[in-house]
Design a protein around this nucleic acid. Structure first.
Lengths: 229, 229
DNA sequence: GTCTATAGTTAGATAGAC
DNA sequence: GTCTATCTAACTATAGAC
């Protein structure tokens, strides 16, 4: 229940609140503060381990005030995830597909924002269970990021720019897997793992032209989509 | 608390049990049944989301009987993890290091055992928090598997068998990251992701000789350890 | 079986912002 | 005066542990 990805729309009568939050300036700011506080708590303790009272304490609001803005724990988690993944999701529908340069840039940025990587990995791992509140969210997320990255690499594939044995999709899955896997390693040993550097290295091994050239190539000349990969 | 990775040794007096379980044949079997039941529950719900009563129900023992065999939830989780990772840990101290063929073989085996991959990914993700009961366990696990795989690849590196730009350690980290990342993708789309196949593909891109040849090469002739990689 | 702690959630009333 | 924000209080369920 409550797996709705659409925010608006008709709510079940049982869950309708007496007042609608977020319309006053004060409320908007507090909503943001709650999301900021919730991010590291969900990241460190996971969904079940995190408590709403702890999150409320972290940002100095009362427990009941928190529930005024996010009437259920599920909705709070989804709101945090949506805000976190926003930068990536913006590119899901890009014409040329998800640029690899964007993935690397995001990896470079993420290591500067404490808790973001931890949230993503914890949430994506525990969401593999079908009854997890964020299951549908992440199932859709992976579907779309794989599809988008595959679209991007199809142009390269049709020009023979991929290493032997790779299809556009397998290359996309490998690059995304490397990113996720390295982020976990980074959480255990932040000095020894350079996520973005290793991603660039892998990309340079899988794609036989420099990353910048590939971005420009795909942006400038849309692939003629010859071979189906 | 209770982050001990060593099993034996002096226990705190407060936690000493009145009788030691697992010495009678019946107790040994029951212990195994509990571990079998605990694996998928921890994997699906995570550490905090899993309940001892649910685990006990799954294997038909009483809640208090379970607590006789595993006096605390922390210890139960660690016992499950140790048994799950046993096959990999066996190779941590191998002379030539962790063979890549072993990693691929394990990946091939894991997709046949429901819950094992889910447990590993959930536990390794949430254990990145320093206060998680399995934090020390997984910090040590990653240390050793990276070191062991690096040792294995050092021989290849010293003979110039790695793709341009790779050191033994970076190659090891990439291969391990690909494995972990693909396993998450596999949990979301089991038909679309062939973990072992993609691992072989990546290995063939990073190491410039066939995997079988590399295993034989390293087993037969220990590397002269020329260049420090 | 009991105990203690804490979880998420709900109801209602009051005070404040628009 | 209406909508929003916040607070006090309580409920029900379940957790791990003894």
């Amino acid at each position: 229940m409550s797996h709705e990805t659409t925010q608006g729309g008709a709510e079940p009568a049982s869950r309708r609140k007496t007042s609608t939050p977020g319309h006053y300036a004060k409320g908007v700011a507090k909503r943001e503060a709650i999301l900021d506080a919730a991010l590291p708590v969900f990241g460190q303790a996971g969904f079940h381990g995190a408590s709403l009272r702890e999150i409320a304490r972290q940002c100095g609001v009362s427990h009941q005030s928190l529930m005024h803005y996010f009437p259920t724990k599920d909705e709070l988690l989804l709101a945090v995830l949506r805000r976190r993944d926003e930068r990536l999701r913006r590119h899901f529908d890009d014409a040329g597909g998800m640029r690899l340069g964007e993935l690397v840039a995001l990896a470079e940025y993420n290591v500067e924002v404490p808790g973001v990587i931890q949230l993503f990995n914890t949430a994506s791992a525990e969401s593999t269970s079908p009854d997890h509140p964020a299951h549908d969210y992440y199932a859709d997320f992976y579907d779309r990021i794989v599809a988008s990255t595959t679209t991007y690499l199809r142009t390269a594939a049709s020009r023979g720019l991929l290493a032997p044995g790779y299809t556009a999709e397998s290359a996309a899955r490998v690059v995304l897997a490397v990113q996720d896997g390295l982020q976990v390693q980074w959480l255990y040993d932040r000095d020894a793992v350079r996520v973005a550097d290793l991603m660039r290295l892998v990309i340079s091994t899988v794609v036989t032209v420099p990353l910048d050239s590939l971005d420009e190539l795909i942006a400038g000349q849309p692939g003629e989509g010859a071979t189906e990969n």
